[in-house]
């Protein structure tokens, strides 16, 4: 059986999500046997520009160079996977969309063509994405499960369970109860509630669940003493572009106040 040809690429991002693949230390040698990891510019010298079964792309589109790269990757990929929060939801770099231009204008690159500014946006706002492995960074076991699923021709269905499901199974006591602004109830799980396990509230890096009860989440945070500005900032930090209704729910008619 021919091995799946896999490429791992990065556009604007921190390379942490690519590292998450490598962090599967115990499985790494088997993984290299399992698939043909042909392109991985972050750790490889030779990365042919050709057709791949799966391309993982990390990072978001933030400059003209990214735009060209992402179009090329889409053309080269049978299956394009948005790896990590930047690629999937825009993450922290996309937060710029919610600030005034005068706050950052003086920081933009102007001379180098490839670095010329593009509105920072997740990959699916430019090309079709076949699968999302969200998270900042994505869960390494989930990446592995995706690859193994692809090898078996059975890619796992993405969960829509909130972070709370794993959090409660892990025996954590709800951080909302402790007055922390945890976004677990509206955030897609699959991360094993890693932040909450360590005592840090969920910031929502994996994106909103389809089933989220956003009005209730907001009114609960308000009841806990967080003001609208705080709630808006917090919810926008990782996934602002995926919450277009946020402003309306936050300031508009609130059914649950």
């Amino acid at each position: 059986m021919t091995k799946l040809k896999v490429g791992v690429y990065g556009i604007t991002g921190c390379a942490g999500c690519q590292l998450s693949i490598i962090f599967n230390e115990d499985d790494l040698l088997d993984l290299i046997e399992l698939v043909d990891l042909k392109a991985f510019p972050f750790i490889k010298e030779v990365n042919p520009d050709e057709q791949y079964d799966i391309i993982f792309v990390e990072g978001l589109v933030a400059d003209k160079g990214d735009l060209e790269t992402i179009k090329k990757l889409r053309k080269n990929a049978k299956v394009l996977v948005a790896l990590g929060a930047c690629a999937a939801t825009g993450c922290v770099p996309a937060y710029r969309n919610f600030t005034l231009k005068e706050n950052y204008e003086h920081l933009l690159y102007r001379k180098i063509k490839e670095l010329q500014d593009v509105q920072p946006t997740p990959v699916d706002m430019h090309v079709a994405v076949d699968y999302y492995l969200p998270g900042c960074p994505p869960d390494k076991r989930q990446i592995l499960a995706f690859i193994k699923g692809a090898v078996k021709g059975a890619i796992p269905k993405p969960t829509d369970n909130p972070v709370c499901v794993e959090c409660r199974q892990n025996g954590n006591v709800c951080l909302l109860e402790q007055g922390k602004p945890c976004l677990g109830p509206i955030t897609v799980g699959g991360c094993n509630a890693v932040c909450v396990n360590g005592g840090l509230e969920c910031w929502g890096c994996r994106g909103p669940t389809k089933d989220m009860n956003l009005p209730l989440m907001i009114s609960l945070l308000k009841r806990k003493g967080f003001d609208e500005k705080f709630i808006q900032d917090r919810m926008r930090t990782f996934v602002g572009l995926k919450l277009p209704m946020l402003k309306e729910v936050l300031h508009g008619k609130n059914h649950h106040a």
Binding site: N161, P162, C164
Partner: peptide, 26 residues
């Protein structure tokens, strides 16, 4: 309801479960 599943996870009687397969990388 936030649909967080706390009620069922902490319930001493809730016994629903799901079954999943996982394969080895090797």
């Amino acid at each position: 309801c936030l649909s967080c599943g706390a009620c069922t996870a902490l319930c001493p009687t809730c016994y629903c479960f799901e079954i999943h397969d996982e394969v080895s990388t090797a």
